[in-house]
């Protein structure tokens, strides 16, 4: 009896959730096979169809989230799940500072909260491979990685200060109709800890079978893709409870028939 009640309640609640949150818009991404910077055994990765948020999660959306789930408020969050930088720039548990825009991407959030946020909306964080797959597009084509202008655009981002204060949608709309993958903030991925780069870039080219099972797969496929190197470097430097000023997230969803 109790369980049935609970079930009903949870179903009701889930549907309530999806309507209550101003759900961010999603667009379909058509899957395919591609070669990421760090591949698997065959270097090729297969991506299934999925949907991705058009924009990174904003301060506004996150504000609603922490109001709904007080356990993720700054003063209540468990230290296991977020370090001391968690939402450090907010004025209080449920208020932004004056300098922060509601439409700017939320940053200073840990992997755990990002993961939970997506889960609570019936979504999930993208995998590294999915994120990279969508992010290799520019305005016109799905794989722009060999275009000089594509690389230049991303590299130039490192020279723009405080882009985390910019509002969502301030960069280009890519081939998949997704905004802000480059030029705004870094984004969490579900399996960011699959990046075994140690940060010692010269060491990572070794095949040290003593260190990792099957470490032979550690080897970059494109030495000119500096932008991707940096993304993998940042992932390699992260721990799940880290919160950073330049790190936000967005969600994806499997396409259910």
């Amino acid at each position: 009896m109790k369980t049935i009640l609970r079930l009903i309640m949870s179903v009701l609640f889930t549907s309530y959730l999806t309507t209550a949150f101003c759900q961010s818009e999603m667009v379909p991404i058509k899957g395919s096979v591609y070669t990421p910077l760090y591949g698997r055994d065959s270097m090729q990765v297969t991506i299934s169809d999925f949907e991705m948020d058009v924009y990174p999660v904003t301060n506004k959306e996150f504000l609603q989230f922490v109001k709904k789930y007080p356990k993720w408020q700054r003063s209540k969050v468990k230290r296991l799940f977020a370090d001391n930088n968690y939402l450090i720039n907010w004025k209080s548990d449920t208020e932004l500072s004056s300098g922060q825009s509601l439409n700017a991407p939320v940053t200073n959030v840990s992997w755990f909260v990002a993961n939970d946020y997506c889960k609570c909306l019936g979504k999930r964080l993208p995998t590294v491979d999915e994120w990279e797959y969508v992010a290799m597009a520019d305005q016109d084509i799905a794989d722009a990685r060999t275009k000089a202008s594509y690389n230049e655009y991303i590299l130039s981002w490192y020279e723009k200060p405080k882009t985390f204060n910019n509002e969502i949608g301030s960069t280009f709309k890519n081939y998949w109709n997704v905004y802000d993958l480059h030029g705004l903030v870094w984004e969490w991925t579900s399996d960011f800890n699959s990046v075994l780069v140690s940060g010692e870039s010269r060491k990572d080219v070794d095949t040290d079978t003593n260190l990792f099972c099957g470490s032979a797969a550690i080897g970059a496929t494109d030495l000119m893709n500096y932008a991707a190197f940096m993304r993998y470097a940042i992932r390699g430097s992260l721990k799940a409870k880290y919160s950073m000023k330049n790190l936000g997230f967005r969600c994806v969803k499997d396409i259910s028939e």
């Binding site: 698997r40 055994d41 399996d191 800890n193 699959s194 990046v195 075994l196 099957g214 797969a217 799940a240």
Partner: peptide, 8 residues
């Protein structure tokens, strides 16, 4: 803080 990746 364990890292892992499926490679096959």
């Amino acid at each position: 803080a364990v890292k892992y990746k499926q490679i096959s």
